[in-house]
Amino acid sequence: MKLLYFAWLRAKIGIAEERVDPPPEVTTVAALLEWLKRRGPGFAEALKDTRIVRVAVNQEYVASDHPLRPGDEVALFPPVTGG
């Protein structure tokens, strides 16, 4: 699974992207966020309020109950501020 981080999530986590192989119980977006939180202080800080974290799977916005598959591209980012 490929993970991408943008804006202040990237700044707090310290990397822009990585490949991860989460444990088999991580089957949804919500479970992925809980698993990521436990990977270190940067992750915990970036993901402490998951209500303001937007998630895209394979470049489409998804809700927290969206199912995940091993080859997915999952992006985490704050609410967008373009325009």
């Binding site: 980012f77 967008v80 501020t81 325009g83």
Partner: peptide
């Protein structure tokens, strides 16, 4: 665009 396109300032 302002609420959906993934840009950050």
């Amino acid at each position: 665009l302002k609420t959906q396109a993934p840009f950050w300032k």
